[in-house]
Design a protein around this nucleic acid. Structure first.
Lengths: 172, 172
DNA sequence: TATTGTTATACTCTATAACTATA
DNA sequence: TATAGTTATAGAGTATAACAATA
């Protein structure tokens, strides 16, 4: 039982912790520039929501972010300008629109998560293995409780399907 | 061993988790409006730093926040205007100044922490006691590792003296 | 008339650059 | 001259209100 290589689920811990932080960002309101993101935190929140709710309209996105239509419209302007998001016409109604993550948008999120988890792993490396396992168990349980408690029926953030996922990633 | 009242360290967990998030906010960049704070996250970060570094000058505060003097100067303008921060003349040099948290500033932070920890406790209540204890142990260890790894010698955030503090809250 | 999305306007936050005053 | 702090000025984010288009 060493602290170096053959440790069970070291990057699992990083993945779960990362998803908890993402949860907190949407739940509490957001981070800032986080790593070396070319997008702001506000824009990042948009990407998170679109990742799990592809094709939603601006109104729904606004409500999910607990923001205002004008702000979200401006956000989408810039996200579309840098090619991470796309606005398309809605099939249902001609006054609505569909918001989509572009392939570049998905790639960006993947890269961001990798960067974050690597940063977390540097810290986790300095922790005793027992503590790391305790943290993993605790965070998994916390995430489940947070999802059930604060976001009943909403699937705003949280990585689509984390490695250590045994419970409800989205409850409803 | 129930989940309701006589649980060991339930608010300890909340306090430690809250301080970890505060750590992440300064370490990673910040949250947003968080609860119902009358101050922005940027202003909140200033308060955090001043709480642990009373009387520092604007240059040092700027470096700690990894920002620019002009931005921080504006931030202090507004924080001073709402009475949470005070600028005083420096004893050392006539071209420097000392930044202080006012009593109102300290009260604000105390109230904010209470609000946050209550919000956390609502989630923690939904967790099995064993998971809660594991989370506590894991987060304490994580915080220690994060302080030692990412901020060697810096004491930017982290509640002054948390309940479950056994290790280095500030390392140098 | 109600709803979706946008634009008009204003304030905060951030940053680069220019400025004042010390040292 | 170098440093501490403050003002320009400009871009991004947010919000309220007014507007166009659709239902």
């Amino acid at each position: 039982m060493n602290t170096v290589s053959p440790l069970p689920g070291r990057s699992d811990v990083a993945a779960v912790a990362s998803s908890v932080v993402e949860l907190l960002e949407v739940l509490w309101g957001g981070g800032r520039d986080l790593v070396s993101a070319p997008v702001s935190v506000s824009q990042l929140r948009v990407l998170y929501v679109l990742e799990n709710n592809d094709g939603i309209n601006l109104r729904t996105l606004t409500e999910t972010l607990d923001s205002r239509p004008s702000s979200v419209s401006r956000l989408c302007d810039r996200l579309e300008a840098i090619g991470l998001v796309q606005r398309t016409a809605s099939a249902a109604s001609r006054r609505e629109l569909e918001l989509h993550l572009t392939p570049a948008g998905r790639t960006f999120l993947t890269d961001l998560r990798t960067t974050r988890e690597q940063a977390l792993e540097r810290i986790l490396d300095a922790m005793p293995g027992a503590d790391r396992r305790a943290l993993l168990a605790g965070l998994q349980s916390f995430r489940t409780a947070a999802l059930d408690t604060a976001a009943p029926g909403a699937s705003a953030a949280g990585t689509p399907a984390g490695p250590g996922d045994a419970e409800a990633t989205r409850s409803a």
